[in-house]
């Protein structure tokens, strides 16, 4: 069943269009930066963008910083919201279950498909970011990269930091996917599931920025989303990254459990 879901994923034009669009925005940004040479002032604009003018090798990180606040979660929420509700509204869910495909099995296959999509999207942005960064912004002939703290990084050090960053952002997106996947088992409308997932994220972002909500802030799903910036400090302050992984894991476990409990017991009336 997992193979069937992956075949569906790659055969659907939407998969590639959405990933293409995700990659397009950082390229456009890079073109503007390269042409004008005007960098956002440090502390303003998308994360890390101020640092890339001098070094294109840092651009994968900046590219992910550009798509992370909205674009990437939207793409992941749409994909995960579609998972079960999309089958329901296409009328194919009942035929899959009658084929028969066990409900748990189907849900696991959907989850794997969403994970693969998420990883593909994050990797694609990182790779396209690297290529654009090197070719448009240049490597400035240096073998080292300056961190946010002003010290220098060797290419090997930059490579593992970027790798960990891809995994960290990927895991944050799995949190988004878990919300949307759960909602996807509740409703038969994939639009409602995707929008519900985004509503959770927007609410979380608002509350994170609200000092009055300080008591719950550290448990909100988007609280540590930008903690991967710490990977480009030297030495890496791991505290926020660890907390972020822990919080996301909590959401993922609870929501996937809820999705499973709901989907395996509900009446399929679509």
């Amino acid at each position: 069943m997992i193979r069937v879901e992956l075949r569906k994923l790659v055969s659907r034009p939407r998969t590639w269009v959405s990933i293409g669009l995700l990659c397009l925005l950082p390229v456009v940004v890079a073109v503007f930066l390269a042409v004008t040479g005007i960098a956002p002032r440090p502390g303003q604009g998308p994360t890390l963008l101020a640092a890339v003018l001098g070094n294109g090798a840092l651009y994968p990180a900046a590219a992910l910083g550009i798509v992370l606040p909205f674009f990437l979660p939207i793409a992941v929420a749409v994909q995960a919201g579609e998972a079960v509700a999309g089958e329901a509204s296409a009328g194919t869910l009942r035929y899959l279950l009658v084929r028969p495909v066990g409900r748990t099995r189907l849900l696991v296959a959907k989850l794997v498909s969403v994970l693969v999509y998420t990883l593909l999207a994050v990797l694609a942005v990182a790779v396209v970011g690297y290529v654009t960064g090197i070719s448009l912004l240049g490597n400035s002939g240096q073998l080292t990269t300056t961190t946010l703290a002003g010290t220098t990084l060797t290419p090997a050090s930059l490579a593992w930091r970027t790798g960990v960053m891809v995994l960290y952002i990927g895991w944050s997106m799995v949190g988004v996917a878990a919300v949307a996947l759960f909602l996807s088992t509740v409703t038969d409308s994939s639009l409602a599931a995707a929008l519900g997932g985004l509503a959770v994220l927007v609410s979380s972002s608002v509350l994170v920025a609200l000092d009055a909500a300080g008591a719950v802030r550290d448990y909100l799903p988007t609280r540590y989303w930008l903690a991967w910036v710490d990977l480009f400090r030297d030495p890496v302050p791991w505290h926020d990254l660890q907390a972020g992984v822990l919080v996301q894991t909590g959401y993922v476990v609870v929501l996937l459990g809820a999705a499973w409990a709901n989907f395996t017991t509900r009446d399929i009336t679509s």
């Binding site: 069943m1 069937v4 296409a90 009328g91 009658v98 084929r99 028969p100």
Partner: peptide
Amino acid sequence: ALVEGPGAYGHLTGRANLRLLDAAGP
């Protein structure tokens, strides 16, 4: 079974739909 109308993925051919369904189950 045929329950309340057929269900198929609109972007695929009928043949591709049946192959996917066939591959999905035991």
